[in-house]
């Protein structure tokens, strides 16, 4: 099976248009350039991209 890489695909909302991708493979929506943080905030957040600035919720799996 060819190694399918959705190169140059516009990032579409999660789940939308994902049907044509084979099952069993992980997919990451394609990032597009957007707003960036001011330098000091970016340095603290660890990213210049607000899109990638996720809160870190640690904890055990809740069964």
């Amino acid at each position: 099976m060819d190694y399918y890489v959705p190169y140059n695909r516009p990032s579409n909302p999660a789940g939308c248009g994902m049907q044509q991708f084979p099952v069993g493979m992980g997919y990451v929506p394609w990032q597009t350039w957007g707003q960036t943080y001011p330098l000091d905030r970016a340095f603290k957040a660890g990213t210049i991209f607000p899109d990638l600035d996720y809160a870190f919720h640690y904890g055990r799996c809740r069964s």
Binding site: Q31, W33, T36, L39, D40, A42, F43, T47, I48, F49
Partner: peptide
Amino acid sequence: QTGFAVDDAILF
């Protein structure tokens, strides 16, 4: 701070 921004832009 500026160096970090350069690094992140490079990754993109």
